[in-house]
C-alpha cells in the first residue's frame, strides 16, 4: 500500500507556504500566460515555476508528471504544426510533411503554456498535504461538499498507483510475470489497465462512503486538530502575485 497522496514530505520554504498562496500562484501563472502570450514571456514564467520546484526539493518528483503531459504536448505540436490556418511560411519538411513557422510558433506557445500549468500544479500538489489544503479552504468558508470533491480528485492518481501495486501483486502471485526485462513489463502493463480502472472506481466509491460516514458533509461547524499554522509572509506573497497580475494587465492594455 503506501500513502494515498502525491505529496512529498520535505522541509523547504515552499512546503511552509500557505496552500492558498500556492493556489493563487497556480491561478496567477496560468492567467499570465494568457495575458501576455509571447513565448519568451511564458518561458520566463515557466523558468520561475521550475525554480520553485527546485527550491521545494521536488523537481525530480515532478518529472514523471511532466513526462506524462509530454504525450499531450507532442500531439499539440503535430496538429498545430500541420494544420494551423495561418500557415504560410514554410520552415522545413520531413519527407512529405511540411512544417510552417506560424503553426510552430503557436504550437510552441501552447507547449510552454501546458508546461506552466503542469509545473504550477506540481508545485502545489507535491509540496502541499491535501488535507492541509482542504482544511485551509474549508476554513475560508468553502463548502465541505466541494472539499470532498477536491480530496477525491487529489486522491485519484495515488489511489491508482496503490491499486496498481495491489493488482500487480495479485497477478504475479498467480503466475503472471511482471518483473524483469522491459518487454515483460510492457506486456504485463496492458492486462493491468482494465482492472486498475475498475478497482479505482470501486475504491473511490469506498473512500467516499468512508468520508461520508464520518460526517464529512455534516452541516455543523468543523474544528481542526492541528493548530492553525503561521504562514510566513502570507500577505506579502499574495499581494505580490496580485500586483504582478495587475502590472501584466496594464502592460497588455497600454503596450
Amino acid at each position: 500500500m503506501g500513502s494515498m497522496t502525491l505529496y512529498v514530505e520535505k522541509n523547504s520554504l515552499i512546503h511552509h507556504l500557505d496552500p492558498l498562496v500556492k493556489l493563487l500562484y497556480v491561478a496567477a501563472s496560468i492567467a499570465l500566460t494568457y495575458i501576455l502570450p509571447e513565448p519568451l514571456f511564458i518561458a520566463g514564467v515557466l523558468f520561475i515555476t521550475f525554480l520553485l520546484l527546485v527550491v521545494g526539493k521536488v523537481f525530480r518528483n515532478s518529472l514523471p508528471i511532466v513526462a506524462l503531459s509530454m504525450v499531450l504536448i507532442f500531439s499539440l505540436v503535430i496538429v498545430q504544426g500541420f494544420f494551423h490556418p495561418d500557415n504560410a511560411t514554410e520552415l522545413f519538411a520531413i519527407g512529405p510533411v511540411v512544417f510552417y513557422e506560424e503553426g510552430l510558433t503557436v504550437a510552441l506557445g501552447l507547449v510552454l503554456r501546458v508546461l506552466v500549468m503542469v509545473g504550477a500544479f506540481s508545485v502545489l500538489i507535491l509540496t502541499t498535504r491535501p488535507d492541509e489544503m482542504v482544511e485551509r479552504l474549508i476554513k475560508k468558508g468553502m463548502s465541505p461538499k466541494i472539499g470532498h470533491v477536491i480530496l477525491s480528485v487529489l486522491q485519484l492518481i495515488p489511489q491508482m498507483r496503490a491499486t496498481m501495486g495491489k493488482i500487480t501483486d495479485a497477478q504475479r502471485s498467480r503466475g503472471m510475470e511482471t518483473e524483469g526485462k522491459l518487454l515483460v513489463r510492457i506486456k504485463a502493463f496492458f492486462p493491468l489497465i482494465g482492472p486498475v480502472v475498475l478497482n479505482s472506481l470501486n475504491e473511490t466509491k469506498e473512500r467516499s462512503i468512508a468520508l461520508e460516514m464520518r460526517g464529512f458533509d455534516a452541516p455543523g461547524k468543523k474544528t481542526f486538530l492541528n493548530e492553525e499554522k503561521i504562514y510566513p509572509y502570507n500577505k506579502q506573497f499574495a499581494g505580490m502575485l496580485v500586483i504582478i497580475i495587475l502590472l501584466a494587465i496594464v502592460w497588455r492594455v497600454i503596450g
Binding site: D131, V134, L151, E206, M213, G215, F216, G220, L225
Partner: peptide
C-alpha cells in the same frame, strides 16, 4: 479497509477526522 478515509496521513489524524467534522474543541479531541 473500507473505513479508512485516505484523507489523513497518520492513524492519530485518521481518528481525529470524525471529531473535526463534529466540531469538537481541540483539547477534547
Amino acid at each position: 479497509f473500507s473505513q479508512m478515509t485516505g484523507a489523513k496521513q497518520t492513524v492519530y489524524e485518521e481518528v481525529a477526522f470524525g471529531l473535526e467534522n463534529m466540531g469538537l474543541v481541540r483539547q477534547e479531541m
